[in-house]
Design a protein around this nucleic acid. Structure first.
Lengths: 196, 196
DNA sequence: CCCTGTCTACCTTCTGGTAGGGAGGCTGTC
DNA sequence: GACAGCCTCCCTACCAGAAGGTAGACAGGG
């Protein structure tokens, strides 16, 4: 049953969980070893250094996000529904505590103290997310499916900031409901059907 | 010349700077000792443990914020101007790199891994900020000085989330201008003079 | 036979923290 | 005024444990 995942996948998965709770400096190889049920030295076989491990992790996290977004766009066309799906994804993650925080958002807060290779990957994630959201905003604006009050780029950045800030608040208050509560008015304002 | 600040103030100040860049686990007593020009052991005289130090720091940070907000409300009455002043404060801090991130926002992201005493102080900061912003939103709504589309409490949380998220983006992109760019449309939307 | 993956054992450096001593300043008492 | 005592602050020296990381051996499979 543990063969469904390779050891290195298990290492990455537990590192993800650990980073999500305490950031880059908040976990150690010993912590991972404890979770995976392996010795510290064995982790070095898969990832020679901590920087290797986290760089791989963030890179894969971004690729997963790219795949997820592509799949989402296959199933959903309406721009507003795309934004709702994105927000909804995080609402569920926060609700069931499975992935209560975006790893890249957390790492971004530690950026100045991060090894440069990792910092670069984190920045790339932000650029990707921003690019995607901008494209959604842009299309929504042209199609009349979104009610924008600024340029698509600015709306995209503002939306992303709301999502990240709402994650932070949900964590600070310890109440998951605060996340959708914060996002709801933002989504409603973007909706063309209730334009004032 | 170094007597303008007591040693313990210097310790707190350098700890503040260090936390702002790398979070709770991103600095050590040795780092502070290096900055202040004192030995590690001497820090323990002022703050017996790291938890003591950071708890004191966050508590003082909140009190400073309370004083700052009280002073601001003395000088500024208009709710919209209060929100602009708050955003402007952070815009300047980010611009000149003096305090490019809110310590409590950063610590909130690490909350699950923080010593409980510190976590409690961080939560108290969020409650304070939220209460103040809610009072501003509420008054603005009643006076017609703000154009709210949701309840004051929700608008306050959304505004706070925008500020925190915008801080994160400014850090991630490494471009300070992104902060005011994100906040501008939010402030404009709250403005009664341009209500649609 | 080699390659992969794990192990034990070990290293160095850093971590927060402690013990104890010395210099200097204040204060009370003779 | 002198001096003892104490208090504050900083020091050197040390500690145990945790950090990331290395070396080398062993087991099993292709």
């Amino acid at each position: 049953m543990s063969n469904l995942l390779t050891t290195s996948d298990e290492i990455l998965a537990s590192a993800l969980t650990l980073i999500m709770s305490g950031g880059y400096n908040g976990f150690s190889y010993a912590d991972i070893a404890g979770v995976v049920g392996i010795r510290k030295a064995s982790i070095h076989h898969h990832f020679p250094s901590k920087v290797d491990l986290v760089r791989t992790l963030v890179k894969q996290y971004r690729k997963d996000a790219e795949v997820g977004v592509a799949a989402l766009e296959q199933g959903v066309q309406d721009p507003l529904e795309l934004l709702k799906a994105y927000a909804g994804h995080w609402a569920r993650c926060i609700e069931d505590s499975s992935r209560p925080f975006c790893v890249c958002a957390l790492l971004a807060s530690e950026l100045p103290a991060l090894p440069p290779e990792i910092a670069e990957e984190v920045k790339a994630f932000f650029r990707f997310l921003s690019t995607w959201l901008t494209s959604v905003m842009d299309r929504g604006s042209r199609e009349g499916a979104l009610n924008l009050s600024s340029q698509p780029r600015v709306e995209a950045e503002a939306f992303m900031a709301s999502v990240h800030g709402a994650m932070l608040s949900a964590r600070a208050y310890g109440t998951p409901e605060v996340f959708p509560a914060i996002l709801a008015p933002t989504l409603q304002r973007l909706s063309p059907t209730v334009a004032q």
